[in-house]
Design a protein around this nucleic acid. Sequence first.
DNA 1: CTAGGGTTAG
Length: 563
Amino acid sequence: MGMVNQSVLVYERLDSNMKNSQVRNVVIDVLLRNGLVDDAFKVLDEMLQKESVFPPNRITADIVLHEVSKGRLLTEEKIIALISRFSSHGVSPNSVWLTRFISSLCKNTRANAAWDILSDLMKNKTPLEAPPFNALLSCLGRNMDISRMNDLVLKMDEVKIRPDVVTLGILINTLCKSRRVDEALEVFEQMRGKRTDDGNVIKADSIHFNTLIDGLCKVGRLKEAEELLVRMKLEERCVPNAVTYNCLIDGYCRAGKLETAKEVVSRMKEDGIKPNVVTVNTIVGGMCRHHGLNMAVVFFMDMEKEGVKGNVVTYMTLIHACCSVSNVEKAMYWYEKMLEAGCSPDAKIYYALISGLCQVRRDHDAIRVVEKLKEGGFSLDLLAYNMLIGLFCDKNNAEKVYEMLTDMEKEGMKPDSITYNTLISFFGKHKDFESVERMMEQMREDGLDPTVTTYGAVIDAYCSVGELDEALKLFKDMGLHSKVNPNTVIYNILINAFSKLGNFGQALSLKEEMKMKMVRPNVETYNALFKCLNEKTQGETLLKLMDEMVEQSCEPNQITMGF
DNA sequence: CTAGGGTTAG
């Protein structure tokens, strides 16, 4: 501390024309390192004055921002203000630091603040590089905000900040994930090889190719994906790797071409690339979807013999497949197998089990799994809560429904529209209109607009007690007061209700209305109408409607045949 | 910046 005091003493005695930026930087550094934050900021403030003779430089920003974030000396807001003051002197924070700061803002869903910082720095023409922009771009990409991404890239171009390989990677990836593969290919061709002022070139790399191949596969354009692989092999620094082949394998699996997928495994081996656990999981998943569990298990065991061990994802895939064919015992068997194999379950394994059990309506088993999940130190997420609430509603277990809701609240989780829709339909089925209204109100209070499903549940409830006037009122409200429009399901509910009451005229005019409004009728629409005709034995109208059904390309089903 | 895992209500 003595040394610090001496340094400060010396500094204070200096003539003000001796206190240049370099000297001040040293003093600020010493003060901050010794925790004398207020003193440091006093010196900094002198530098940041508008007409300061010795303004801050790159090093000032380096020292201050590094220490500030290391010691958490300032709030995010104050750091932003500080950056802005540096910016007004034409000083940028160090690129690495700025990138980290932008990322952390984005993680806290403060992309707007990040945007403002970068705009401010650009406006003041401070020197900038691509990485901080990449951080913001990848955040915008996660939110699929492509238009703001394009804006940012344009702004970069205006102030001559050159994009790098990562920038290109982010753009391609976001476009591919939004299924806009052609645009991704276009951006790729446009940006790659582009020479900038300083002679640098953005070179295409394996990640770019992998992303594009995956994008093409995900939209089923397998032939083009294969062509891109050929092109990739001809490029300089682009060697296909396990990711490349796994993307192709996934593409074939999704298309149900399991044999071709297995051929790609052979091709990758010939190419000197070992299949990995992702390869196994992809094919196991594909087999489960298209050829059933047994084939998948055989494949899995073959691969284990080749030395590729399964992981949580492998077991989860198998567990899910068991559940989807209602084989809970087998699901639990694979759960045990997973533990034996030394794979520690993560939260998602439990969610998958819960999802499977909810689908086959095994409420007691689901409760057991929830207990196991909690024992494992995990908690349910909104999705899992929704599935469970749905299950307990279905089982008329109001007590459990309330338990789930209080649990959610305890964990600070807000119900979403799916939760509300589930509850509204539950109360509707019990003809508890008071609760229905209460839920609708609460939903609005939570800032959630009613969805088509919400209306569907309520309209259905009023129809079920024969209050068609009330149902029609809501139906009309839909178009008027909210942005949701009636869909096929809503029309079917009403047509069914009128048909049941023998009001064929009203039912028929609703069907006409839906055709006029371009809402497609389906088999159920016609079946609902037939229900009414059958009683009145109006054969002629029936035949006419049958013809119309064909016209509308509605496949008649079992129920239709009964008329 | 690239590959594989659970999504509800009518």
